[in-house]
């Protein structure tokens, strides 16, 4: 299964990014192959529609779960329709590595 995590940077030591649509990077983690991919978020500075464009990006990677600090109502409803599970982590100090260890 693939999981997307919003990250502030492109290393395992980077902290979780609390924003979904405008996060700095997406980490795509494959629980089977244990591989990670860091994708810079091209929608970071979009004026409008950063949320949907980011959904498009992570969903096209085939993820089944998305982990972030928060999701807007519209973003949530689209993910619901796609049957992608959302996990909210409120602890802003968590690193990507710590989150990966929990999976």
């Amino acid at each position: 299964m693939k999981v997307a995590i919003t990250s502030t940077g492109n290393t395992p030591e980077s902290l979780l990014d609390s924003r979904f649509g405008r996060c700095a990077y997406f980490v795509i983690y494959d629980t089977q192959s244990k591989s990670t991919e860091y994708i810079p978020n091209p929608n970071k500075d979009s004026l409008e529609g950063a949320g949907p464009a980011s959904i498009q990006l992570v969903a096209s990677k085939g993820v089944e779960k998305v982990i972030s600090g928060e999701f807007g109502a519209k973003v949530k409803s689209v993910f619901d329709r796609l049957q992608i599970q959302l996990i909210v982590i409120k602890d802003q100090e968590k690193t990507i590595k710590e989150i990966l260890d929990l999976l």
Binding site: S46, E48, P52, A53, Q56, S60, G62
Partner: peptide, 9 residues
């Protein structure tokens, strides 16, 4: 305007 989401798979 990022107003369309399309996921072929």
């Amino acid at each position: 305007y990022n107003a369309i989401i399309c996921l072929p798979q």
